[in-house]
Design a protein around this nucleic acid. Sequence first.
DNA 1: CCCGTGATTCTGGTCATACCAGATGATGCC
DNA 2: GGCATCATCTGGTATGACCAGAATCACGGG
Lengths: 271, 271
Amino acid sequence: MPSPELDIVLGDDSPKIDKRKSVPSIFKRLHREEAEAGSSLVPSVIYEKVIAQIKMLLREGRYSPGDKLPSERELSERLGVNRNAVREAIRALTLLGVIQTRPQSGSHLSTQVEGMLHLPFEFLMLMLRPSYQEIQELRGLIEVYAAGRAAERRTDEDIKNIEAALEELYATNHQLNYGGGPNRRFHRAVAAATHNRLLEYLLFCLLEARSSYIHSLSPTGTGRREQNQHHERLLLAIRQKDAAAARAAMQDDMGTAAQVGEIIRSSTTDS
Amino acid sequence: MPSPELDIVLGDDSPKIDKRKSVPSIFKRLHREEAEAGSSLVPSVIYEKVIAQIKMLLREGRYSPGDKLPSERELSERLGVNRNAVREAIRALTLLGVIQTRPQSGSHLSTQVEGMLHLPFEFLMLMLRPSYQEIQELRGLIEVYAAGRAAERRTDEDIKNIEAALEELYATNHQLNYGGGPNRRFHRAVAAATHNRLLEYLLFCLLEARSSYIHSLSPTGTGRREQNQHHERLLLAIRQKDAAAARAAMQDDMGTAAQVGEIIRSSTTDS
DNA sequence: CCCGTGATTCTGGTCATACCAGATGATGCC
DNA sequence: GGCATCATCTGGTATGACCAGAATCACGGG
């Protein structure tokens, strides 16, 4: 059941001429023309064609998350390209998190989106080099909104998840990884209560990338008590479905985080 | 000046044993262990090491956007791996938008972040399949916030840009690509006035991916007049630095967009 | 001495082939 | 029927080759 027909066809009905000489030149020409036009509608290089195919199959619903892709050898044969090109495509998609591949088993479409935006976000920050304030502003605006919505939409299940996350946070509270995973998980649990997966996941990735970008956030424990307090307030507000109070609590929590960020920034004044 | 030293070293001081047999087995073992643990701290495959290297160089500031990378052959030699692995890494990063590569010239770190998140976002939506409401909620929350901040922070330059974008939008208003590029550029111009590049870019990519995800948004012209009106109000509010009015105008614009989305959804009831 | 021209070199894009090691699945023995 | 064994398949990696266009440099004319 895994591998639905998929008869992939590369857009070109190229006359199969020799393949070593003619085909590349065609691509090259297309490439140049496209490059000059600034557009990229026609994939210039083969691996992009492979990716475009997979994307199309996803879009058309012929492939669904979890499905197994044909083997690299089979794909390369069907697509009429070398295995290297297929590998490059698969590798690139793996990096995006679209595909998961196990060494001697095969490649599957990811069943979960976890990890899909981490690297892209990380690189985005490395390239854009946003200030701490910029990140915090974006984060804050999403989190505060999410807190309010969470209060309005939360189910009992959500409450349980948030409580569990909070408990975990407390359990690791004495450790050094302040602001680390548990904290992110708590915030994610709150965001999840909005029942907007896109929002939840975007925020989560933003937090992950932020944490990785502002490396070693750990040193200071400043405001930990305040932060715990904010978290408690937040949970209470969400439980009581008090959107305004939830937003206020989250806003305060953001403020605390901003303070921490300030300390970090001032202590590492360079770069 | 382009290629700063870079003496890349793969983390392992492997005793250079034959290289065809021993090294892979080491990776394999590490890979399996990591896979079982669910983590991925140790890059399992070589191309990930290459990527990690580049990321590290970026993080350390030894490489900056625009710099030219060593040639694939040179990289593969320095890293002690095959050129394929290097290509896979470069290709993957190209897909992320981190690297730009021209056929007979070389690979450079992208100077612009444009296009960095497009594909990731697209795939995220293809995998997550969020509802129109989910997208719109996320979009709306960012846009409304941005409108307010734009009103507070805008410079005269920003006003000019927004006006220009609005003019372009009007110019193409009679065409079919309603809700297309010009509209996104207008919204981006507003977001740019917040002077938070991260926010601006994130929103932009979200809009791009949204447009690509909700394909063929064009058919209906419903609400175009209202939308124009909202845009005018928005511009006015930003010009007058009236944050509340700006948020209100944007909120209305989001409402219009939601309506359009509703129509689209109801007219294509399937999939 | 400058500049244009032409050949050489370099680079990315593609391909073919080969081998390894682990996973998979079929086969056959008990 | 259950379990061990082996052929096969798969992804990971390596080597080597060629193409076409870009980049570079050397050379000769002005």
